[in-house]
Design a protein around this nucleic acid. Structure first.
Length: 640
RNA sequence: GGGCCCGUAGCCUAGCUAGGAUAGGGCGCCGGCCUUCGGAGCCGGAGGUCCCGGGUUCAAAUCCCGGCGGGCCCGCCA
């Protein structure tokens, strides 16, 4: 057991339980240990117990409780004090240092990383952005959170597989493919990435199709309604004009070739049908355009340092017959129904079963409409194919658990997916499928839309950040290699994405992300570089056996307590998959370290035992930052 | 219309599940430290109706009820 703080909690819990017992109040040791909280300020001690939570009758007797505790002479408690409704507790330096030294010397570079007895097999499906445009910052948040989940499990000893679902059968890809074919498989002259180029083609096509659709509608509606549609068309034309500015010739020839078509909607529809049937004449060109976009996406992900084990094409899933199997099961299921004349699963009964609801984590009052699994023309819908895919993810990897990292706006289809799995007899899969939901990313003053090519791409953000890093280095007269600039830039981006709770909408401000001040990844990287520099100058192993205990005061003490708490923080972050907690812990650690560093020289310390204490703090800070970087996917930068 | 989530200084954020201290940080702002181990740093300061109203309680940012504001979902899209 190498968790200094956990031991400390239990030790204090023991002392308190003993003392309360003699006051006639019997409390559970573990419960008290859990109740101990961190005081907001150092002058309130190392840990504090809110007395009323233990027992109301103790509030009056706090003084007696305090003296009882002291009399018993615990190995870990130095002193206690009653302030308000709290019992503030100070730890013995000797105890703290012993535990910390033991933990650090025994665990070494593994300090804080929990060791599990058995390992689970876990699949994380993430990003899975439609291959119709480059990754924008929303997909960036997905990528970074998904990578974090995978890392959390890997570090905990689980076996993890990362998968990207290439959704190449959706309507969006059909639209891109339509434009791509109409223009005779265009290539962009110049060096711009294909995903950026094809993203514009997709947006242009999609907008043109929407205009045609609206114009057609105009012919059938009344005078009153037509006004609104005209306005909509004007807006769409404005969007098209904006896209045209970026790609003039392309939009012109698109309008020309689409204009000569008789029934555009029918053409797109038959495209989706042919695709799903695996028609040879278009499958090749389809795969070609998808792979071109995908190549760009992969390049971006590589830039972020995020890798995948498997790229699963939705079309392959259909061609393999897996989707047909699901369709057959659905048709013969007890839950089968017709909804608006389309084949569907009626999941209401299942959703009304409170036990099932709880097991599948279906939100309390979420209404579950019937899940239509096929269009009347026979083609399938996303969720149907996702049922097949989920089963594939579980079976191929013998997974105990599967994460879908999917935006919260898809809460309903994700809930339907779990219910449908359950309904079709895949109970274990339904229960072990976790929708890791996250809120959207907004950019100040911009309403984003992939269909209109209004987005900020991950590529742009990283490039912008890297440029600023290089500028800053130049101002300081430091040479900085491109790969180092990239590492600093992408870590800055990841830091922003990880520092806000996933359930909160994130407002992205490029200017702020780029600041390299306290409260950024760069600050942490800088802190680590400082700590590393001291350790390499020292050049030896820290002697944990001869450490001065009296010297543990002020900032040193604060830092030691923070380092001691790390395993507990790590555990909580991994269990709750809440990266923002790790980020705020790291900020505090770095601030305390830097503040201490500024006034208290380490290597120049003449007294050996005190120097060892300081070295232990530097070493501990280093290991803690390195291990949390492993968890968060931030880069270590030696020179910064 | 129904449902889910969010609301804490100019901006961002912790604390809310299990009520308990003077609401903890960061950015920005103002003022210091022109540098003994790396100044991308350090120290200090100002800045708050915890969205509003009611309730429960010895005690509410936290729990309950009712509002307000913002986001999202309720498609033969994903």
């Amino acid at each position: 057991m190498c968790e200094p703080y956990a031991e400390l909690r239990r030790c204090i819990g023991r002392a308190i339980a003993r003392a309360t017992k003699s006051l006639g109040v019997s409390v559970n040791l573990e419960a008290v240990a859990d109740m101990l909280q961190e005081p907001p300020k150092p002058e309130f001690g190392d840990l504090a117990l809110p007395i009323p939570r233990v027992s109301k009758q103790l509030v009056e007797n706090c003084g007696t409780l305090a003296s009882q505790i002291l009399e018993a002479e615990s190995e870990c408690i130095e002193r206690v004090q009653c302030v308000g409704s709290y019992l503030n507790i100070w730890t013995r330096n000797m105890y703290l240092i012993e535990r910390l030294a033991t933990a650090l010397s025994e665990s070494g570079s593994k300090y804080g990383i929990p060791r599990k007895e058995s390992s689970a097999r876990v699949v994380v499906e993430f990003v899975s952005a439609n291959p119709v445009h480059p990754l924008h910052i929303g997909s960036g948040r997905n990528a970074i959170l998904g990578d974090f989940i995978a890392r959390a499990h890997e570090l905990s000893g689980d076996i993890v597989e990362r998968r990207y679902y290439v959704n190449d059968l959706g309507l969006q890809v059909a639209h891109l493919l339509y434009g791509y074919i109409k223009l005779g498989r265009p290539r962009k002259p110049g060096s711009d990435k294909d995903d950026h180029f094809l993203g514009l083609l997709y947006a242009a096509t999609s907008t043109v199709l929407d205009i045609i659709k609206a114009k057609k509608k105009l012919e059938t509606v009344s005078e009153a309604e037509s006004e609104e549609i005209r306005r909509e068309i004007d807006t769409l034309l404005g969007e098209l004009l904006r896209i045209k500015k970026k790609l003039p010739e392309l939009v012109d020839s698109l309008l020309e070739s689409v204009g000569s078509s008789k029934d555009v909607e029918q053409e797109v529809k038959s495209l989706t049908q042919l695709l799903e049937l695996g028609d040879r004449s278009i499958v090749n060109v389809h795969r070609e355009v998808v792979d071109r976009v995908l190549a760009g996406i992969r390049e971006t992900l590589e830039k972020l340092g995020i890798h995948f084990d498997k790229w699963d094409y939705e079309s392959d899933l259909v061609y393999s017959g897996l989707v047909d199997e699901i369709l057959n099961k659905a048709r013969s299921s007890n839950y089968f129904t017709l909804h608006k004349n389309a084949p569907a699963l009626d999941l209401v009964k299942l959703a009304n079963n409170s036990e099932v609801r709880e097991a599948l984590a279906i939100p309390k009052h979420l209404e579950i409409p019937p899940l239509i699994f096929a269009r009347s023309n026979g083609t399938t819908l996303y969720t149907t194919r996702d049922i097949a895919y989920t089963i594939k993810k579980f079976s191929e990897f013998s997974a105990d658990r599967v994460y879908n990292v999917v935006a919260i706006e898809q809460m309903l289809p994700q809930a339907q997916l779990r219910l449908a799995l359950y309904a079709l007899g895949y109970v274990r899969e339904a229960v072990s499928l976790i929708h890791y939901a996250y809120e959207m990313v907004n950019v100040k003053g911009l309403s984003m839309s992939g269909r209109r090519a209004r987005y900020i791409t991950v590529d742009e953000v990283i490039e912008d950040l890297a440029a600023r890093v290089r500028d800053l280095a130049e101002k300081r007269g430091v040479k900085i290699a491109d790969d180092v600039a990239l590492k600093i830039a992408r870590s800055a981006f990841k830091y922003v994405m990880l520092s806000v709770s996933p359930r909160k909408t994130l407002v992205f401000d490029l200017e702020q992300a780029v600041e390299v001040k306290s409260g950024t990844a760069t600050y942490l990287q800088y802190t680590l570089a400082r700590a590393n520099s001291i350790m390499s100058k020292y050049g030896r192993e820290v002697d944990f056996s001869k450490i001065d205990c009296e010297g543990l005061i002020g900032k040193r003490r604060e830092l030691a307590l923070l380092i001691a708490r790390f395993p507990e923080v790590f555990r909580k972050v991994v269990i709750e998959l809440a990266p923002e907690d790790m980020v705020s812990y790291l900020n505090r650690l770095a601030e305390v370290f830097n503040s201490w560093y500024d006034t208290d020289p380490v290597l120049a310390e003449p007294r050996e035992e005190l120097r060892n204490l300081k070295l232990m703090l530097v070493y501990g800070t280093r290991v803690v930052i390195e291990n949390s970087f492993k968890l968060l996917g931030l880069d270590i930068v030696e020179k910064i």
